[in-house]
């Protein structure tokens, strides 16, 4: 596709000064961004979709797993041991191991990244629940709270700050890791980075890299705002 664009640029020189062509290869290039707007938007939305699905899937599995692990101490050490082992495996080795089962699809990337998010989230949930003071639990029990109501009304809200910290770590690292999905051609902005590096196209490479970081920090800020809204009590003089 680029070949045709370059062809046009070469056959009609000086019509429009462009910062990418056969002769110039600049890092910052707004022409590139406007010319390839659709391609960039597609990649960015795939990137976002993969991240959101992976972290969402991670949360959906992490909550029941953490609750189970809390009940069964032996399961807890197994879960923590497995998650340490899993986070040791590089993503570029994990995706190929999933390929025999899910093929060269976005599912492979989402499942792989969800597994990584899971390792962070289960720990965060367990730590958060453990941070709930015993006397708070006791007074809730004294007030007649059953296990289910206590979990939803007392424990989860109090665990939220630690859980949200884990969610931030999981989300930001998932955004970064999504790029590796370009190994199976579903890496969101990672596909542009890979194309940029194989064709030595600097504007494409830098734009995609910067967008990755921007998405990571934007999602991070979004979670911080959500946390502020969900835990108003932490701001009322209780910050320190």
């Amino acid at each position: 596709m680029r070949v045709t664009v370059l062809g046009v640029a070469a056959s009609a020189p000086a019509v429009e000064p462009s910062c990418y062509s056969r002769l110039t290869n600049e890092w910052f290039c707004l022409d590139y961004v406007s010319d390839r707007r659709e391609e960039i938007l597609d990649a960015a939305s795939e990137h976002l979709l993969i991240t959101v699905l992976a972290v969402g899937l991670g949360v959906v599995i992490a909550v029941p797993l953490a609750l189970l692990a809390r009940r069964l101490p032996r399961l807890e050490s197994t879960v923590l041991g497995l998650s340490t082992g899993l986070y040791t495996v590089p993503s570029i080795a994990l995706f190929p191991l999933l390929v025999p089962f899910t093929g060269l699809t976005m599912t492979t990337v989402v499942i792989g990244l969800a597994l990584y998010a899971l390792t962070v989230l289960v720990r965060a949930f367990l730590e958060g629940l453990r941070a709930v003071p015993a006397e708070v639990r006791e007074s809730a029990r004294g007030l007649g709270y059953g296990a289910g109501r206590m979990l939803v009304r007392i424990e989860l809200p109090l665990a939220l700050p630690v859980v949200m910290a884990g969610l931030r770590v999981a989300t930001v690292s998932t955004v970064a890791l999504t790029t590796v999905g370009s190994l199976v051609s579903h890496g969101g902005l990672g596909n542009l980075i890979r194309d940029g590096v194989t064709t030595n196209f600097r504007a494409e490479l830098l734009t995609a890299a910067v967008l990755c970081v921007v998405i990571a920090f934007a999602l991070d800020a979004l979670i911080v705002v959500a946390q502020r809204l969900l835990t108003p009590w932490t701001r009322v003089g209780g910050a320190h």
Partner: peptide, 18 residues
Amino acid sequence: SNVGRAVPTFALLALLVT
């Protein structure tokens, strides 16, 4: 650490090579 987490390793490698 926060910055290290947000920058994709793949992107930095690609930048250095290019």
